[in-house]
Design a binder for these strands. Structure first.
Ligand code: FES
Ligand code: FES
Lengths: 141, 141
DNA sequence: TATAAACTTGACCATTTTAGTCGGGTATGT
DNA sequence: ACATACCCGACTAAAATGGTCAAGTTTATA
């Protein structure tokens, strides 16, 4: 199970954005330089963040992005959903009664994977951008 | 973040094994048929489970595999570790002071990913094969 | 003792996903 | 006008995934 760079970058970029957001819009170029993320890749990511109304864009010189909500309203869940970073513990369709690879019934460990998915999503549900802003020095795991 | 089939199959197969384990060894062919997992793939998986002393093998006709420990001693952690299904929330080396892709320092969200990794691993640490055996009818998430 | 069931090992492979890059735009402040 | 910065879609190299295949060795049992 691994977290993809896209998801990781999305959160990194938004934390960066939230920090410098106060007065002026923040350009992707700045984020790219500060966080060491490819500019072209950031553009893909922010296009999705914008579609999902997590950020707003301002075009032209001195343009950039700003948050569209307050940091405590932006949860990891929202960010990951926006960039299609989803938690998948199974392959079969959620709604369907059928199991993986066309089996008539769900597998014997199916409950387990559902539990796991809930467990992970709970973490994402309980973390907001705001938490990440405060936490920078103190946290030590 | 998705769970790979290898990890999922390993757990499925072991639950199946634990159920039929009482008297005779269980052949991979049987597990393959019951769980709908490719026999060749199962062989790869059980080779690793054996190396990690989670199962024992009995060769020859009427042979098969048996658990090498009692079900409550086999945690998901052990199973996943055996088949190299690891939780990775970052790309950089854990021990190193350096960050991802050669950056001098860890990224601003690094604590978060460490927390996430711990959160997921806790789940695996707290589930044993035994839990999965009892849980089959009652659990409903 | 012949045979078949079942484990053992290692190589191989198609497909999908990931993590980008590239090349063109368009809008706008100075 | 021009540089900065967003916008958009296509393309791609490399890695991971989810297997398959071939050629063994071991052992119960008829
Ligand atoms: S994971 Fe698909 S059937 Fe259980
Ligand atoms: S994830 Fe690698 S530096 Fe933080």
């Amino acid at each position: 199970m691994k977290l993809t760079s896209k998801g990781r970058y999305a959160v990194m970029a938004l934390v960066d954005l939230a920090r410098f957001d106060n007065i002026n819009p923040v350009s992707l170029r700045d984020i790219s330089l500060r966080q060491g993320i490819s500019l072209d890749y950031l553009e893909q990511i922010f296009s999705k963040l914008k579609k999902n109304e997590i950020v707003k864009s301002i075009r032209g010189t001195q343009g950039g992005y700003v948050l569209n909500k307050s940091p405590n309203e932006i949860k990891l869940t929202n960010i990951f959903h926006a960039v299609d970073e989803k938690v998948k513990t199974v392959q079969c369709k959620k709604e369907s009664k059928k199991g993986c690879n066309g089996k008539a019934t769900k597998c014997i460990t199916h409950n387990l994977w559902d539990e796991l998915e809930v467990h992970i999503n709970t973490f994402f549900e309980n973390k907001s951008l705001k938490d990440l802003l405060n936490n920078n020095k103190e946290t030590r795991v």
